[in-house]
């Protein structure tokens, strides 16, 4: 083999497992971090434009005034070993997915909303459908996936964990509802996702970093008017409504700083949390 056939550096697309001295310049960060990360720096002026937010839930009602355009809606089903992804024509089978989409839209008015319905085909098999839906969502390269749901089935835990890590390295932010019940449930407890519980305050941009994880952030999830099926609204409470608040804020941040990795994004959330440095 002639000497010039041996590459001096690995091609750019290869993952870097080590950092030679002459490669330091290559990983120079694109973001100039300010001396102090403020909310204005993080998402000031952002509308969420260009960010694709996936609502993994019960479907989203098309044409709901609080939701606006739904860019894509699919339903996941499983027949035997076959996963089917079909255009969803049934809308929302509960109301919850529409509520989550409405909350995301209220915070990030110009983001794209994509609905992936993983609920409605019965309790039996719902864990497998959740897994297949999440896998499909990650494969689509969505920027943010809102998961106001969880499973207690142990057999799905390791597969969900792998998917959550996969999403993390592919720069898809998973935002998942924490569980306030004394059972093991997933995926919110994985450190590669952003887990969210509720606080009782009214401001949609007030969120707190929790210095005692596993719940990482508390967002508005108490007595809020949310979009519901039939074009209406309901007043609801639950961690499942706090979650899309963080998903919406994440969409705002990513629209302004698309280069952020999930690690950096979580740092920005921490630094802009109401109890850390983020004035409302």
């Amino acid at each position: 083999m002639s000497e010039d056939a041996v590459p001096q550096e690995p091609p750019e697309e290869l993952p870097a497992w080590s950092l030679p001295a002459d490669a330091v310049e290559r990983i120079r960060l694109e973001t100039a971090w300010p001396e102090r990360v403020t909310r204005d720096w993080a998402w000031g002026g952002s509308t969420g434009a260009g960010i694709r937010v996936c609502i993994l839930d019960s479907g989203v009602e098309p044409g709901h005034p609080d939701v606006g355009p739904v860019d894509n809606a699919v339903a996941i089903s499983i027949a035997g070993d076959e996963v089917n992804v079909e255009v969803d024509t049934e809308g929302d089978l509960c109301g919850h997915g529409t509520a989550c989409a409405g909350i995301v839209r209220s915070l990030a008015p110009e983001c794209e909303i994509h609905s992936v319905r993983v609920l409605g085909a019965g309790y039996t098999g719902s864990g497998g459908i959740l897994l297949a839906g999440l896998r499909w969502a990650i494969d689509q390269g969505y920027d943010v996936v809102n998961m106001s749901l969880s499973t207690t089935k142990q057999k799905f835990a390791s597969m969900l964990h792998e998917l959550a890590d996969d999403a993390y390295f592919r720069r898809t932010i998973l935002v998942a509802s924490a569980h306030n019940m004394p059972v093991e449930s997933y995926p919110w407890k994985f450190s590669s996702v952003i887990s969210v519980g509720s606080h009782e305050l009214d401001d949609p941009l007030t969120f707190f970093y929790n210095p005692s994880p596993p719940v990482e952030f508390f967002a508005r999830g108490y007595e809020l008017d949310v979009a519901w099926v039939g074009g209406g609204r309901l007043r609801c409470t639950g961690n499942s409504f706090a979650t899309p608040h963080i998903a919406g804020i994440v969409a705002l941040i990513l629209a302004k700083h698309p280069e952020l990795t999930p690690f950096q994004l979580k740092s920005v959330l921490h630094l802009t949390a109401t109890n850390v440095g983020g004035e409302s």
């Binding site: 019960s58 509960c94 919850h96 609920l119 309790y123 719902s126 106001s148 749901l149 969880s150 499973t151 207690t152 509802s177 569980h179 306030n180 019940m181 059972v183 449930s185 007595e223 309901l234 007043r235 609801c236 409470t237 639950g238 961690n239 499942s240």
Partner: peptide, 12 residues
């Protein structure tokens, strides 16, 4: 929804 998602819900 509550059963499948394991999430409590309050609606008023």
């Amino acid at each position: 929804w509550v059963l499948v998602t394991r999430q409590p819900l309050v609606i008023e």
